[in-house]
Design a protein around this nucleic acid. Structure first.
Lengths: 186, 186
DNA sequence: TTATTACGATACTTCAGGTATCGATACTAG
DNA sequence: CTAGTATCGATACCTGAAGTATCGTAATAA
């Protein structure tokens, strides 16, 4: 196991750097078994790590999944010559991400858990939604309320399709979604 | 307790008609405690009924919630002089329903459960989505794929807002949603 | 060498969905 | 009025999963 090498290393045994391994095992397990059956025990086993090690890093399953999604999404590509192009690129990017194996199910699952867990809802909002919302606000020059509305529309639509069919939205419908949002953005 | 009076009553003690009581207790419990803490035990207690009685009528918590929602929604008001008016009326109707105490949380919760339970997903689709989808297809004269897309957009958006904020969407944003869908419908 | 901290393993607690059992009750049929 | 049948409430139980506690062992700094 490789180690975390910090400039000022504190005393004691250093934490083994297992984040990447655990994230990969998490997505893999969710992909294969679904969110509900992807227990922390199974994720730990798949990562070759003890369950206690996971709970030392993330305080709950929801927090683990959230961190995993933040890692998987990375920064949004808010590129384009116009606001329309930026919005179009962003929608297609999130649609593609949600279509990746494990990510859509993990997203729908943690969202679902968050509905009845205010602490998790706040975490999800702060870690996953706020950064993209702020970046979009900046890139589009739209007020917060309007950007939040667009996020509800795009992410809600994609997750609803994923939840009802078990499959990510096909390209034709993603095109329709882009078109619909652009008509309103203009 | 009043009884179910069937024309040809079968032998044995007749079932007490508790559906309405149980549905009311279900929405009330979900409203007060949230979906996850609204356990079948608590719902049964609130309805003044044994848990076994509930499981004799509905095979799972998901099935109970689904039946409860079907009962709460009732038939959609697909009225209006034009397709635009029909769509507008339908969107405002479902938005208002999801805003009623307990219904939004119950909907989000059972949707959430369905993501990882194919049997429940099929039940939810058959009992809750298909009737409205078919009626909309008929009323709007749009192909199935397009109606399904509209349902994903409208319901997905409303549930995402409900899930992320804990509050139903306000009137201004429902207006924006109607406007957005109508721009695409035209 | 010692103090400190993380590690894996394992047992445990809590809670919720769902099942099984049982005596009591409300009917129908004769 | 009696026998048969199916439901009722109550209760105990099983299973699975999140999260906690404990403990001996391993890795590092001083």
């Amino acid at each position: 196991m490789d180690r975390a090498t910090t400039p000022t290393r504190p005393a004691g045994r250093p934490r083994s750097s297992v984040d990447a391994t655990v994230f990969a095992a998490t997505l893999d397990t969710v992909h294969q078994l679904g969110y509900a059956h992807a227990t922390v025990d199974r994720i730990a086993a798949a990562a070759g790590v003890a369950k206690t090690t996971i709970y030392r890093r993330w305080p709950s399953k929801g927090a683990l999944i959230t961190a995993c999604l933040v890692d998987a999404f990375g920064p949004a590509p808010l590129t384009g010559a116009s606001r329309e192009e930026i919005m179009s690129t962003a929608i297609r990017w999130i649609a593609a991400k949600i279509g990746e194996p494990g990510i859509g199910a993990a997203f729908a699952g943690v969202f679902t858990d968050a509905v009845n867990d205010p602490a998790l809802r706040q975490l999800l909002s702060a870690q996953l939604q706020d950064p993209y919302q702020l970046a979009l606000q900046e890139a589009l020059g739209e007020p917060e309320k309007r950007v939040l509305f667009f996020i509800d529309v795009v992410v809600g639509t994609l997750l609803h399709r994923m939840g009802m069919t078990g499959e990510p939205m096909d390209d034709a419908d993603v095109d329709a979604l882009v078109e619909m949002v652009l008509l309103t953005l203009r």
